[in-house]
Design a binder for these strands. Structure first.
Lengths: 245, 245
DNA sequence: AAGTGGTCTAGACCACCAT
DNA sequence: TGGTGGTCTAGACCACTTA
């Protein structure tokens, strides 16, 4: 690790190198990284410095440590989706992974909001996915998802229909895109005709509208999602923290 | 640090001791802790171990480090409130501390939901505060706050009216209660008559309802707050992170 | 210049997991 | 038993703040 930039801590440089390797695909999701001692030797830093870099990546949900086993590249499981991205729980507080039904899949051209969120040109080619999410058999949430065609070449509705897990698992396994973070903006709206019909409520009923932008490494946006949630029997919860303490 | 519990890391014990001192009021909010080297000597641990304990408390927003100056007990400023607790921003994304007007202050007996949230007996004595929050002159949010009388002895509407900063600053300075964390549940509702009048919308208009429980040290709940927000021109945003990276 | 937190080292030993 | 991450030590030196 000779010749680092001035003023930048060594462990930040190491973190940068680890992230570069992850972005380059040197270690696939779910696989173990070399042992910390090995990585420390490779980067020619002390073990403590290496660990500090890994600490950061673990905190950002990019790596997962398991004592006695190793350090792994994080994968997208249902559990992870539920804790990190899906914040809707039933009134009792029971978290449950929803049942997802594909309603529509088509190509289109990016509207202003989509283009801005995905940082692509306005009118650029996108995929649009429309899903109906149900919990305990009752429809709760309509998701409209927008993806840049360029990032998901050859995506088909068959992939969406046959996918066993979460969409983010599909992104990861089929397109080597790992979602690591999301930002959401929420507001209350009145149900439009379409949402009212799908969710089984009266038009104009209050619904929770969620705009989510999902990012992969380096704060690169890859998905825009507009969710409309019937909060008659469900809440959006912050604080689903299996972290801290 | 001889005689620690088996299986508990030393830095956790140190963290426990630091929190005990904070709860006991050994260091007042805003004041500096002894230097890390001094604390390490006092607890008879290595500096690295002491730092790891402090790291945790910094991450939990309980302590604040300032290089070259010291480590301080976190205080409640408007900035902190805005980033950690107040998640409403205008559509452009501009965060702005709202103007608060006290509408009502009275004593009452805890309803079921309030009692459960505050972990007090049903029907127990509480204070109820009703505030109208405005941004850029326009009313945006009605807050109904419930506090256990026992935790805030002698609270008066004069204190609320003359308070220069945030409510959490008042809790901290006048009642030695430091809010360190909150949990929120959100849903969309139709405006009732009262909210409609205060926010200047039609009854039944969709509003965002937020239930917040605020906790002090040791996950001890001290405030229940029901907010109703007009999201016509504002959003609730997650991800107001001045942390990480 | 003195004092603070921030980084970095080079180990030792412990707890846990797989075999 | 051997390999992994987790904890802990006892320093040295750097960067920043204050006086």
């Amino acid at each position: 690790m000779a010749g680092s930039a001035p003023g930048v801590p060594l462990y930040r440089e190491v973190k940068r190198l680890l992230m570069d390797a992850l972005i380059a695909g040197d270690w696939r999701p779910g696989t173990a990284l070399p042992a910390e001692r090995v990585l420390a030797d490779r980067f020619e830093v002390a073990i403590g410095t290496l660990r500090k870099a890994v600490d950061d990546l673990v905190q950002e949900n990019i790596l997962v440590r398991q004592q006695g086993r190793g350090t792994f590249v994080a994968t997208h499981s249902r559990e992870r989706y539920q804790f990190q991205f899906f914040h809707v729980v039933d009134r009792g507080g029971h978290a449950e992974y929803p049942h997802v039904r594909l309603l529509d899949f088509r190509k289109g051209r990016a509207e202003d909001e989509e283009a801005a969120a995905l940082r692509i040109a306005r009118g650029g080619p996108v995929f649009r996915i429309k899903n109906l999410l149900a919990m305990r058999g009752a429809p709760v949430d309509v998701d409209r998802i927008t993806l840049a065609q360029q990032r998901f070449p050859g995506l088909t509705d068959r992939q969406l229909r046959e996918r066993p897990g979460t969409l983010y698992q599909l992104y990861q396994t089929a397109f080597a895109i790992t979602v690591v973070r999301s930002a959401e903006r929420l507001r209350a709206v009145g149900a439009d005709e379409d949402a009212a019909r799908l969710l089984g409520v009266d038009p104009g009923s209050p619904l929770l509208e969620i705009r989510r932008v999902a990012f992969t490494y380096a704060d690169d946006p890859v998905e825009f999602r507009l969710s409309v949630v019937n909060t008659a029997d469900h809440d959006y919860v912050t604080d689903l923290r299996p972290d801290r303490r």
